[in-house]
Amino acid sequence: MAKLNQPKAASERSSRKRGRRHPFATFALIAIGLGLTGGVYAAATAVPAAASAETTASSQADVDAGQKLFQANCATCHGLSAEGTDSAPSLIGVGAAAVDFQVGTGRMPMAMDGPQAQEKTPQFTDKETKQLAAYVASLAPGPSIPASEYTDGKGDAAEGAELFRINCAMCHNVAGAGGALTEGKYAPALKGVTGTHIYEAMVTGPQNMPVFNDQNITPQQKADIITYLDYIQKNPSPGGFALGDLGPVAEGLFLWIFGLGSIVALAVWITAKAN
């Protein structure tokens, strides 16, 4: 799925011919092999852990306030201790990022049942959202709210654009204009969505979205994607009005209604009899 992020052809086969038949060569080889494997594994798992964008832990007071908010507003569906019910999933282990995304974009609490939760004006203040997030995060470890260095759009836009086309565009459209999914579900447009929410969506996979974890798309690559989306929002289409970035359908509709419409109107005008 993700663009391959291994360094290019790192196969260094430095052939040591001299000591090859030494009695300890086998042991040395195994030792080196084990050392390398372990080292690389440690490095590979350590990088995301180190890089995964943590914000500071929240206080116990926040957790308590969050728990009260949760029990008042969320427990009906998600259960008194977020263990889940028949109508809603368990929230144990979804992490602060999931709460910040779902509540921060107004998707939760849900206004009504439907193919998927819809975005609306958030019901909670930013502070309350953070308290809810702190409470859910305190239940079990999970993805946390990303640090601003990954969400402020200071990455590589070209890299992000390519990653976006490969990983995201099939649902969200190349320009982030959104698209249809099955049975009334849809991938929403990404215009006006904050970098933090985009990051959180990638790590938590809300609604029908798959999870893009840190092995799949590294935090830096996520930052690149956010940078690209930020770029196309801040730099409007060089060609003029973008017609919703919907591609040939919007262009065709425009041409038939306004293009051909105005041409026909002008033709009527030209051939009209003078009174």
């Binding site: 390519e162 565009a169 649902c171 459209n173 190349v174 698209g179 591609g247 040939p248 359908v249």
Partner: peptide, 18 residues
């Protein structure tokens, strides 16, 4: 916006001209 052709990605809203 579309970028170079690559057989793997297909954007949502991929349509021909009218």
């Amino acid at each position: 916006e579309y970028g170079p052709y690559d057989p793997s990605p297909v954007s949502a809203g991929t349509q021909p001209d009218w």
